[in-house]
Every structure is written in structure tokens, then in C-alpha cells.
Design a protein around this nucleic acid. Structure first.
Lengths: 168, 168
DNA sequence: CGACAATTGTTGTCGTCAACAACAATCTTC
DNA sequence: GAAGATTGTTGTTGACGACAACAATTGTCG
């Protein structure tokens, strides 16, 4: 079979785009997604990107990204945790957490205290400025959460949280 | 206020982990997430990671990742699209799409045909083997989707798709 | 007790992905 | 026809997940 350029006839009718290929401008919103609609993963991925971007935008003034926020929140609620414990709880590689904590420690938000019980591990604590900063971050995060509500609706947001409660 | 090491008293009761910091082993499932619970972004992120991994695992035999699958699906449903159109529709950077298509073209699943109408752009088509391969990918993707159903429940999956329909 | 396995933090590499910036070729617009 | 926009491409940067290796330390078990 030769792979010549003009074999646009035996295809099982792809629904859109009549006749002449690429002869006409196509707006992005008239392109069919076919099997993609109905895939939970695709919708979740697009939604996650949107949420992520809104979070970053909303917290840009304080320069805190979602992962950093999750680390600070967990340490704030459970002071004294080891890096392993935080990593496991948040599903972060402990290798990755090292860099995250390096950054947060440089910014004086977190401190690593050598544990006396297990001299391999560090007990993680918020600094005093870290605690006040986290309070501010939480206010901004709540604002971001309101954006989510505006986007998908208050009831839908709550249903979403219920459905995905098992993954937290 | 001095930031000395022994200031664990004036904190507003972090709920868990009584008394002596880091003196006791802590299981990951007894660590409180505090403000993280109630953040849609956190739950969605964790869920997205789970879905992603299951998709990759389910389609590992054919070596197709989620983004590649989405590209193939859109091209299959809308042959002749330009790279710009595909990128815009899927929310992919056009720079990123270049590499994706390079890979798919090397594997003879997709071909770029120089458009005569606009000689800057390429009309994207599936090859004949690309079409049959995509059919197989779709079967495997459907299997993955069943995994999602098992994980969160059939009804919840459908509610999820409704809630996030606006993002597709 | 002492050798050996496991854990903790760390460093490093690799590959995926989003976000930009710059560029040549080509189209559009005036 | 000149100026500006678009398309594909190349390259860089940074966040992130996955892995592998390592030193220091702890746990275990003979």
C-alpha cells in the first residue's frame, strides 16, 4: 500500500470537517473530542490545571505554591513530625521534600530540629513568623476556594469533596 | 518574642500528638490534615495522580500516556487539524505538541501533511496502523475507566463528569 | 554483645510537563 | 509592498514524580 497523500475517502466518517482537508479555518470550540468526553481522567486533569493556576495566581503575592502550602499546613497542624511522616502523609517523595523544606527554611517559615529520640530524623516546626504567615496563606487559600465555588457552584464543590474524600 | 527552641506551650492546641515532640512513632494515617481537608484542589490533585498512574499502568503494554492518548483521539475524530488547533483544543503548549507529534510520527501512528492552503501549517492525520492502534488504545482506556468506577463508584463517576463537564 | 538489615535524610539523575522566549517561514492587513 | 500576526520549531527554566545510591543511625536477631 502506498502512503500517498490523497486517501481521505475510506475513512469511517469522522463527523466533522466536510471534504477538503485544512481548507477552512477551524475554531477551537468546534473540534470534537470524541472518546475523550466520558473519560474522567481528562476532565479531572483540565480541572486540576485550572485549580492549580488559580491557586498560584491567588497566592502569588506571598509566593506560595500548592505543594508548599500543603507542607506548611500539615506541619502547622502536627508540629514535631519527621520528614518521612510528612512525605508519606502528603504523598510526596522524601527526596522532593528535602528541597521544599530547604526553601521554606531559608524563608524562615520552618525549622528542622534534630530529634533526640531518633538522631537520624528532624522534628519539623513552624517558626513564629511561619505561624503568622501561614494564617495569611490560609486566608488567601480560602479566597481561592471561593473562586472554585464560583466556577463550579457551591453544591457541586461540596459533592466533589465528598466523592474524593477517600483520596485525602 | 525570642524564637527559642522550647516554645511549645502558647500554641492553639494542634489537636494530635500529645506532649513530647517526636518522642513516639507516628503512623501516617493519624496525622491531621487540618485546613487541607476542605480544599478541593488537594483532593483533586491526589485523585488526578491516582488516575494518571492507573491509566499509565493499564496502557503500559502499548506504551501510551494520557497526553498521547488525548492527541490521538482528537486527531482521529478531526483529521486534518493543524497543530495549533489541536494544541488549543487540548490546552497543550504548541511547543510541547511538537515533541509529542515527533514521537507519534516516529511510531508511524500519525503523519504531518503539509497543508496547501496554508504552507506554514501541517494537517494532522492518523496513519492506517494508527487507526487500528487507536481502536486498541480505546479498549484499554475503557478498561481504565472501569477501574475508576471501581474506585469511586459508578454513580459518583458520572456525577464527577457532570460537575466537570465545563472543563472539557 | 556484634553483625546485618532497615530507616532517615540527603544528593543526584532521568523523564514528564507547563510556561516562556526567540526564530524562520509564511500569511494577513493596510 | 511593508508591517504585523500566525505557525511550527528549538531551547531554557522550574515544578514535580520516580529511582538509585549513599552516610549516619537505629532496630533486630543470632
Amino acid at each position: 500500500m502506498t502512503a500517498s497523500a490523497a486517501r481521505a475517502d475510506t475513512r469511517p466518517s469522522p463527523r466533522k470537517h466536510a471534504g477538503n482537508d485544512a481548507a477552512r479555518r477551524i475554531d477551537a470550540d468546534e473540534i470534537g473530542l470524541d472518546a475523550l468526553v466520558g473519560h474522567a481522567g481528562y476532565a479531572v486533569r483540565r480541572f486540576q490545571i485550572w485549580i492549580f493556576q488559580d491557586f498560584v495566581r491567588t497566592l502569588r503575592a506571598v509566593d506560595i505554591r500548592p505543594t508548599q502550602y500543603s507542607v506548611l499546613t500539615v506541619i502547622g497542624a502536627n508540629p514535631g513530625l519527621s520528614q518521612m511522616a510528612v512525605a508519606k502523609r502528603l504523598g510526596i517523595e522524601r527526596a522532593r521534600l528535602v528541597h521544599l523544606l530547604d526553601s521554606l527554611e531559608q524563608r524562615k517559615l520552618v525549622k528542622r530540629i534534630k530529634s533526640k529520640a531518633d538522631r537520624r530524623s528532624h522534628a519539623l516546626h513552624l517558626t513564629a513568623p511561619g505561624e503568622t504567615a501561614l494564617a495569611k496563606f490560609k486566608r488567601l487559600a480560602a479566597e481561592h476556594e471561593r473562586h472554585v465555588e464560583e466556577k463550579i457552584g457551591k453544591a457541586n464543590r461540596e459533592r466533589l469533596l465528598e466523592i474524593l474524600a477517600g483520596f485525602t
